[in-house]
């Protein structure tokens, strides 16, 4: 059964904007992105909205729906009452380009700063090996679709613009953790995670986990383990002593401290 949906969409750019009212016909089974497309097709041809797969896998249509960071394509209209007004704004942590589109270059700069996977020399037969159980450990983190909703909701940068240069954000703490847990990576990322990536800025209030559309346990499985690894390196004299006298296992041997990558080649769009 179709009905007439009331919406408020944020229209504007960096010079200013406002919430504008729209009414649009919607049908059973539709999602917020369908309604936005209908507004765009019938009433506001110049409405800017970023989208791609409509299946929750490309991470393009991130926005804030009734104040909550969500993917527009995965937000069912049936989650709301038929007489409820649905308000959609762009993500509020990143610079706005126009309407519902934001400039997420910040995230690509942070990705470039993260040292890439650095495997050791191959075995004598030209292969590299790792056990299945070690492969499986990182699979949860590889579900990330880079929608950047976690980066958007994180109050460290959402509420404090000045923290952006010194804070990589939850999406990249996932990557730090994944690589630090990787048996074949030769980079030791612990100092970098605390220093340049600013993992100490995170106060583990778990909003990143709450908004993740892939259900990745970002805080419990990536950020806290990475914090604990930093504690191993810097704040635990027992670990230090154990390493000195050789009774700690050699799991961290053959790793060298990683250097921060450069983000200078990342171009911000002109707008």
């Amino acid at each position: 059964m179709g009905y007439r949906l009331k919406m408020k969409l944020w229209r504007g750019d960096k010079s200013g904007g406002e919430l504008k009212d729209y009414e649009v016909d919607v049908s059973e089974g539709e999602v917020v992105l369908d309604a936005i497309h209908r507004v765009q097709a019938e009433q506001a041809g110049d409405l800017a909205v970023r989208w791609n797969c409509k299946a929750g896998k490309c991470g393009s249509c991130s926005a804030e729906i009734n104040g909550k960071p969500r993917l527009m394509c995965m937000c069912r209209l049936s989650d709301f009452e038929e007489d409820e007004t649905i308000t959609v704004t762009p993500m509020r942590t990143f610079p706005v380009v126009r309407d519902l589109v934001t400039d997420v270059t910040f995230n690509y700069e942070k990705a470039a700063e993260l040292p890439s996977f650095s495997p050791p020399p191959r075995d004598a037969d030209g292969k590299r090996r790792m056990a299945q159980v070690d492969v499986e450990r990182g699979q949860e983190f590889r579900k990330c679709i880079e929608c950047f909703l976690c980066q958007n909701v994180c109050h460290v940068v959402r509420d404090h613009e000045d923290n952006k240069p010194a804070f990589a954000g939850p999406r990249f703490f996932i990557r730090y953790a994944e690589l630090d847990m990787h048996p074949l990576d030769t980079n030791d990322r612990r100092e970098l995670a605390q220093g340049a990536a600013g993992i100490g800025m995170c106060n583990i209030t778990k909003c990143c986990t709450e908004v993740c559309p892939e259900g990745i346990k970002i805080t419990d499985n990536a950020i806290i383990p990475m914090k604990e690894r930093v504690v191993d390196k810097k704040y635990d004299p027992l670990v230090w002593l154990g390493s000195k006298i050789g009774i700690r296992n050699k799991d961290t041997e053959s790793r060298v401290p990683a250097k921060q990558g450069k983000a200078g080649h990342i171009k911000r769009p002109a707008h």
């Binding site: 406002e18 704004t89 509020r92 706005v96 613009e161």
Partner: peptide, 17 residues
């Protein structure tokens, strides 16, 4: 300094939740 900053979408309220 945050959601009301000069580059962000000017929504004007702390939250729309």
């Amino acid at each position: 300094a945050g959601v009301g900053g000069p580059t962000r979408a000017d929504v004007g309220v702390r939250t729309l939740r």
